[in-house]
Amino acid sequence: MVVLFTRWLVSVPFMRDFLATYPGEYELPEGAPIGFPAWLNWQHFLNVFLLVLIIRSGLEVRFQKRPNAFWTPRWNKERKISLAVWFHQSIDVLWLVNGVIFVFLLFVSGQWMRIVPTSWEVFPNALSAVLQYLSLDWPIENGWVNYNSIQQLTYFLVVFVASPLAAATGVRMSGIWPTNAQRLNVLYPIEWARAVHFPTMVFFVLFIAVHVTLVIATGALRNLNHMYAAQGSTDPLALAENWTGFWIFSASLLLIVAAWVAARPLLLAPIARLFGSVSSR
C-alpha cells in the first residue's frame, strides 16, 4: 500500500515538478573530494566491527542477571564490575579512539563536505530521495561522487549526534564518572543517561539494518567496492560487475561473526587479567 500510494503521489503534476527541481541531491562545495581514500575504508570496517561488539556487550549488560565473572582494576581494589561491563566499556574506549581519528581525518582531508550539509537544499532533496525510495524507484546517485541528501543527513546524525550521545551517556553510567561530585550529578542525573543510552543503541541497530539493506538493494557490488576496496568511478555504472569489494566485505563479515562468538568469559578473562584481576564473585 505504501509503495502504491507513493507511486501515485509522485505521479501528480506538482510532485513531478518537485522531483525535477530537487532530484535527491545537491551540488557539493567546490573542492569537495571525489572517491574514498583507503583510510576511510579501514575506518569504516573498524567502526562496524567495534559497533557490533558494543551492541552485543551492551545487550548482555542490560539483560544479564547473575554475572559469572567480575573484574577489578589494579589501581582500585575496591571497584568491582562484571566482566561483561568491562568488555563493553573497553570496546567503547576503542570505538571512541577510532571515532576521534575518523573525525580528525574527515576535516583534514575535506571528506567532511560529503556528510555535513552545506546548503538548505538538503531538506527538500532529502524528502525527494525518501519518496523515491518508498516508490522503489531508487534515486540515481553515485556515492563515489556525492551522497543523496537523505544519506548525507543520516550519516551526519550518526557521526555528529548519535555517536556523541552514546559516548556522553555511556561515560555518565561508567565507573569513570566521579560519584562524589554531587553538584555535577544533580546537573546530569544518571536517569537521563539511562533514558537516552538504550534508545541510541536501538537507533544504531536500525541504522545498520537499513544501511546494509540499501547497500545491497541499490547496487551491491558497486557500493561494496566503494566502501571496502576504495574503488570507484564518476560513471555510476562502472564496477557493477567487480567482485573485489564483495570478497573483502565477506572476509570482514566472517571476522565480525567470529568476534561475536568468541566474546565469551573463557576468552575475555585472559585479556582482562592484563589490566586487573578476574574473579568468579
Rank of each mutant, 00 (worst) to 15 (best):
W75N: 08
E141K: 14
T213G: 10
I208H: 04
P23A: 10
L19I: 15
L134K: 00
E78Q: 13
N76A: 13
E121S: 00
L127A: 15
S109G: 09
G143A: 04
M173F: 04
I176L: 13
P37L: 06
E78N: 14
P124D: 12
L184M: 10
S252Y: 15
N76L: 09
S128V: 12
Q111F: 06
A168K: 00
Q151L: 09
R264G: 02
H197W: 14
T244E: 15
L46P: 00
V196C: 02
L136E: 11
A209R: 02
N146D: 09
L127D: 05
G232N: 03
H226E: 09
H44L: 03
P139E: 05
W86I: 08
L51A: 13
A251H: 06
L165F: 03
L46G: 12
V202M: 14
W243P: 07
L165I: 08
E27C: 07
V215M: 08
A251M: 14
F102L: 12
A32N: 05
G143C: 12
D235F: 06
H197G: 06
A166R: 00
L266A: 15
A167Q: 01
H44K: 03
A229Y: 04
E25K: 12
F156A: 11
V116P: 00
F14Y: 15
Y26E: 11
H197Q: 09
H197P: 10
S57H: 10
P270C: 04
D137G: 08
Y188T: 07
A251R: 07
S135R: 06
G35I: 01
F18A: 01
F246Y: 05
N185F: 01
W144K: 01
A240H: 14
R16F: 02
W71R: 10
L239K: 07
I91A: 11
P270M: 05
L134N: 03
T200K: 00
W95R: 02
F207A: 02
K77L: 13
G35L: 05
W95S: 05
L268S: 14
A167L: 14
N223C: 04
L40Q: 10
I208Q: 02
F104G: 11
S163R: 04
S174N: 04
S109A: 07
E191S: 11
L254R: 06
W120R: 13
I208F: 15
F204R: 06
P270Y: 04
A238R: 03
V48F: 15
V186R: 14
W75E: 02
W260M: 07
V261M: 06
V186P: 00
R74S: 08
I216L: 03
L224M: 11
F249Y: 12
L184K: 05
Y22R: 07
L187Y: 09
E25D: 14
E30I: 12
W112G: 01
P73Y: 12
